[in-house]
């Protein structure tokens, strides 16, 4: 990248920018980097404009030729992504609501998540569990992402601040710092964390990708990986991968401060507290004092019955 940078030729700028664009929008940085177009030319086609996320977290569209990049090296991009990832988004408190009455174990959430985060098939940031809590209570399907607890036991035990809580409530993992002690796995009561026991599946493909802590890609051998509430998507104003992949309207995602959550399937936005109040929302294992940011609506009036073939597996966990 840097050898191209040295060319002073103006004509090469567009080509250079396209290269940058391929490396990800994230490499074009900062509000200060954007020159508000003075001569904004409306005749130009869509391809001559580029959408850029500013440091103030606004998505703006500017002319390609007006963009001046300040991220010169991989190292600088990395530092920027780290800083952005550790800061989080001010004024937000993300919450997820999972409506168990709608889940039919379609597992589109798991697929979308694994492909977005370059995971192996046995690695689950989100796992749809077949649950049965007591003998006479019904079995149901329960998607289980990281609960993004407000009192996270995992970040408390991390010796190197590799996993941490952001101001917007997301618990992230920095696999460029993780030493692989796996204390967080031991501490997490929700079994929400996975480890890269072997060389990650796409490590060859991701060789030149700059590590983005908000996406935890590329994955690294010998480090932890976990659900990130799709921090990279949320920053762009999009719903998390799993939420928007669900075909059954199971997931709601939103901001507790706005008291609103948006359904990933119907894109309907409803009031968060009212949704919980009307449907008897609850959190998993509240007695542990972890204060999850993931809420569940009970599997009442299921539209899709629990399948007989899954009964045995669900009952395995009974006492």
């Amino acid at each position: 990248m840097s050898d191209k940078q040295e060319k002073p030729n103006k004509n090469s700028r567009r080509e250079f920018l396209q290269n940058i664009g391929m490396a990800g929008l994230g490499s074009i940085l900062g509000g200060s980097a954007i020159w508000a177009g003075i001569n904004y030319d409306n005749k130009k086609t869509k391809n001559d404009r580029i959408r850029v996320l500013t440091a103030q977290n606004e998505l703006v569209e500017v002319e390609r030729s007006q963009v001046k990049t300040i991220a010169k090296s991989t190292q600088e991009t990395f530092t920027y992504l780290q800083q952005r990832g550790r800061d989080g988004i001010a004024g937000k408190r993300w919450v997820m609501v999972i409506d168990l009455s709608k889940c039919r174990n379609a597992r589109k959430c798991m697929e979308a998540c694994q492909s977005a985060h370059h995971l192996r098939p046995e690695q689950h940031h989100i796992n749809v569990l077949k649950m049965q809590e007591t003998e006479n209570t019904p079995a149901f399907y329960m998607p289980k992402p990281c609960q993004h607890c407000d009192n996270p036991p995992c970040t408390a035990v991390c010796p190197v601040d590799a996993t941490f809580k952001r101001q917007d409530g997301i618990v992230l993992i920095d696999n460029e710092r993780c030493i692989g002690c796996r204390f967080c796995i031991a501490a997490c009561p929700y079994s929400a964390r996975v480890f890269n026991w072997a060389e990650p599946l796409y490590s060859e493909l991701d060789k030149d990708t700059v590590y983005d802590v908000e996406k935890n890609v590329p994955q690294r051998k010998g480090t932890i990986s976990k659900c990130l509430f799709s921090a990279d998507r949320v920053r762009e104003g999009k719903l998390p991968y799993c939420v928007s992949a669900c075909p059954n309207g199971v997931y709601y995602f939103g901001d507790e401060n706005e008291d609103a959550v948006t359904n990933g399937t119907t894109k309907e936005t409803v009031r968060f507290k009212k949704l919980l109040a009307d449907n008897g929302g609850y959190t998993l294992m509240p007695e542990l004092g972890t204060h999850p940011r993931v809420y569940y609506l009970p599997p009442k009036g299921k539209v899709y019955p629990f399948q007989d073939k899954d009964r045995e597996e669900a009952a395995e966990h009974l006492g």
Binding site: R93, N151, T155, F164, K165, R166, G169
Partner: peptide, 13 residues
């Protein structure tokens, strides 16, 4: 609302 990691809390740096 205050940031969720503002307190002198056990989870932070």
């Amino acid at each position: 609302k205050p940031a969720l990691n503002e307190k002198r809390a056990i989870w932070n740096v």
